[in-house]
Computed example of a mutant assay.
Amino acid sequence: MRRKVIFRLVGGGIPVEEINHILFVESDGHVQQVHTVDGSTLETRQSLSTLLQTFESIVPGQFVSPGKGYIVNQSAIHIIKSDYIEIKGHKIPMAKRKYRQFQEEYFKFIFQKDA
């Protein structure tokens, strides 16, 4: 089943994006930049917490926050290091205090998905 999410864009427009096409969300002040698989970026003023709640209601556990200002799609993660996560060449900073918890959540997500 294909799950989709709707964004209200800065400057107008309401695109519908397939949830699995979202790689990560980066906060830039009051604007959130949604990075997608095809390399495009959508800008929305919805808060990170609102976006995370929306993602959680559609696909529980798939999107998590590795630190302040980011939400990542766990199925898009290539590398997890103690200080960053890599998704398609983008290095996303990870809060040091969150590393162990993040790693546990990631393994739980991956093994649950494969089961």
Rank of each mutant, 00 (worst) to 15 (best):
L9I: 01
K113Y: 10
G61M: 01
S40W: 11
K98M: 06
F107T: 06
T54V: 08
D114F: 11
V37F: 10
I22Q: 04
I92A: 12
K88M: 11
Q74I: 02
V10W: 07
Q103L: 13
I80S: 01
F55W: 03
K113D: 11
P93Q: 03
I79F: 15
V31P: 02
Y99I: 00
S40N: 15
G89F: 07
Q112T: 14
I110D: 09
L23W: 14
I71P: 04
I58F: 08
Q33R: 15
S57A: 13
I22C: 04
A115I: 11
V34E: 08
K113F: 06
V10F: 12
G39M: 09
V31W: 00
G67Q: 04
S49T: 14
Y84L: 09
G69K: 11
Q32E: 10
G61E: 05
P60H: 07
L52M: 14
F102V: 02
F63T: 00
D38L: 04
K4I: 12
Y84R: 12
P60T: 09
K4R: 11
I87Q: 02
G89C: 06
G29K: 02
I71W: 00
D114T: 13
Q33A: 15
H90C: 08
S57P: 05
I92P: 05
I58V: 14
K96E: 09
F63N: 01
Y99R: 00
S40V: 05
K91F: 07
M1H: 10
H30E: 13
G89H: 07
D28P: 00
E56Q: 15
N20C: 08
Y99L: 00
L9A: 04
G69E: 10
E43G: 04
P15F: 12
Y84V: 06
L52P: 07
G69A: 06
Q112W: 08
M1V: 08
Y70R: 05
T44Q: 07
I79N: 09
K108A: 13
V59N: 13
H30I: 14
F55V: 03
G69N: 09
R2D: 11
T50V: 09
D114S: 13
S57K: 13
H30A: 12
P60G: 10
F7L: 15
F111L: 12
I87Y: 03
K98D: 03
E43A: 11
E105I: 03
F102L: 09
S65L: 06
E104T: 14
F109G: 03
I87P: 03
K91W: 07
E26S: 08
R100S: 13
Y84N: 10
R45W: 04
E104C: 06
K68M: 03
L51E: 00
A95H: 07
I71H: 00
K113M: 11
E86H: 02
V72Y: 06
L48F: 00
K4T: 14
M94H: 02
P66V: 10
M1W: 06
I71A: 00
K108Y: 15
Q103H: 13
D83H: 13
P15W: 04
V37R: 14
N20E: 14
I77V: 15
A76L: 08
L51I: 00
S49N: 15
D83P: 03
D83A: 08
G11P: 00
I85P: 02
E18S: 11
S57D: 13
D38Q: 04
I58C: 07
V72E: 02
E104Y: 10
L9W: 04
Q53G: 12
L51W: 01
H90D: 10
I77S: 01
H21Y: 08
